[in-house]
Amino acid sequence: MGREREVQKHPISYTVEQLISVNPYNPDILPDLENYVNEQVSSQTYSLDANLCLLRLYQFEPERMSIQIVARILVKALMAMPAPDFSLCLFLIPERVQMEEQFKTLIVLSHYLETARFRQFWDEAAKNRSIVEVVPGFEQAIQAYAIHVLSLTYQKVPRSVLAEAINIEGLSLDKFLEHQIANAGWIIEKGHGRGQLITLPRNEFNQPELKKSTADSIPLEHVTRIFPILS
């Protein structure tokens, strides 16, 4: 695909983000964007804008599409949950491409995450290591998403529910909890005889009283309207 050639074309070495902001509708930056996807995978970084830009170029010139790159973008998008990035990517990928086996698997995985069926998710992911494990940090990212949804929902969550959602059990879970107690303010209590209960940090979503009452506040610009009268 002449990738090397392409890289040398920019001796001043623009960053990919700069390339996109200079001209997002330029077919010549396609190889740079593909390399950038691989870079995001290896360096555990993420740029939705760059990836959408690449999917758009594929949409304009389907013959240049690389299935492998699209798969990596989709795994990265799953890792960005709870953001809707996975759907955003699917909107741009032609239906016949979505019929490929590995994409069907990813769509099923996304469905389990979207509907918070973590048990099924981890089972399915385990069956498809070849797809998800090429991207470092996958497990941690999904665990972070699971914890995010749990924190929106629970003030106190039973240990078993947590264990299932993040797919960690036994001693590893003890270690994980220790870490969260030290760093994230989690607290462990004894439940009603049925194992531990974990108190998650309070936020305005699992404790609605914390929600700031915006209803009573008036934006400054509205107040400025009566300044002339007050003076």
């Binding site: 709870p82 979207e114 509907t115 918070a116 069926r117 973590f118 949804v149 749990l150 929106l152 929902t153 979503f205």
Partner: peptide
């Protein structure tokens, strides 16, 4: 799961 989904989809 349904309750978690509710939270996820409404936030």
């Amino acid at each position: 799961s349904i309750l978690l989904t509710y939270k996820h989809k409404t936030h």
